[in-house]
């Protein structure tokens, strides 16, 4: 009849680390409410407005020559700036992480500069350099080269604004990995290029992809710097973010939100890819700590 008490096991309650249920509910509810109002609601509004006149209007808005031209330009600018930043970011991170030289701290500060400067200023710099009254302006005009209000200017401004992403993603990773694997490869007879492609690159691939992803998202979404240098020539120098603004100002809400919905989808895809990559990077970290 008398069951021995000692055999009934109650798991210890972790009261020290847990608030009462009511408080927990309130805190979680507040966080969710905040996210709903400031993140989910705007996103829903973008898609709802884009489809407010039906799917046909949405598709038609995206099929407009101006919209197609903006999409093309945005993809082109992103392709140029991401690939150039990929190469220069890897080189910068390599130099900073694997070598010691005078002025290293200064170089790191320079890499971060685009993050701390307002994008409008970043655009203005190029106007001051290449504009008609700018530093190189007269020379460029004399040789009939167009940089401002054309693709080169937009690409330059975008490259400037998105430069830190790849380097920033790689520097801590490469610093943590050190140079021993490279030294091992070289002592085993590998050339510099073989060492880079067989040892260094595979070790940083997830970090590199992460940097490229963020760089791409920013390159496609950049407004301020591009707005200053683009000149807003319709069907020629408007990127997607610029076109969203123009269409909205002209009360073409469906068309405006249709383009905006594409940018929003890019953001969502980036978010998912970023989460996946971060998980990969964490795994890599655990491996290398071991």
């Amino acid at each position: 009849m008398n069951q021995p008490q000692a055999f009934t096991y109650t798991p210890p309650r972790d009261d020290v680390h847990t608030e009462p249920g009511a408080i927990r509910f309130v805190i979680v509810a507040l966080a969710v409410l905040f996210l709903l109002i400031f993140v989910v609601l705007p996103l829903v509004v973008v898609f709802a407005s884009a489809f407010s006149k039906g799917v046909m209007a949405y598709v038609a808005a995206l099929g407009e020559p101006e919209a197609l031209s903006a999409i093309r330009l945005t993809l082109l600018v992103a392709a140029i700036s991401v690939s150039l930043n990929l190469v220069s970011g890897v080189i910068a991170a390599w130099a900073i992480a694997k070598f010691d030289f005078a002025g290293k701290t200064f170089l790191i500060t320079l890499i971060d500069l685009p993050f701390s400067v307002s994008p409008v200023i970043s655009g203005l710099v190029f106007v001051l350099l290449f504009g008609a009254q700018g530093f190189f302006g007269p020379w460029l005009q004399a040789h009939d080269i167009r940089i401002l209000f054309a693709l080169p200017g937009i690409a330059l401004a975008t490259i400037f604004v998105t430069f830190p992403f790849v380097a920033r993603a790689l520097i801590p990773l490469m610093q943590e990995q050190g140079t021993q694997e490279e030294e091992a490869a070289i002592s085993l007879g590998a050339s510099g290029l073989q060492t880079f492609f067989r040892v260094t690159l595979p070790n940083i691939k997830w970090g590199l992809l992460y940097g490229v992803l963020l760089c791409n998202a920013r390159a496609m979404g950049e407004f301020g710097a591009v707005s200053v240098v683009s000149g807003h020539i319709r069907g020629e120098t408007n990127t997607m973010p610029l076109l969203v603004e123009i269409l909205y100002n002209e009360y073409q809400f469906v068309a405006s939100f249709a383009i905006a919905s594409l940018l929003a989808m890019l953001a969502l895809i980036t978010l998912v890819a970023k989460t996946v990559l971060e998980r990969r990077l964490d795994e890599g970290q655990v491996v290398s700590d071991d």
């Binding site: 694997e181 030294e183 091992a184 070289i186 067989r198």
Partner: peptide, 28 residues
Amino acid sequence: AGERHVGFVFQHYALFRHMTVFENVAFG
């Protein structure tokens, strides 16, 4: 270093972390 034909063993091994044991040994 590569031309000297010297085998070097590092204190912290410096194995190539993204390669299998087999590929590590085959690298050279």
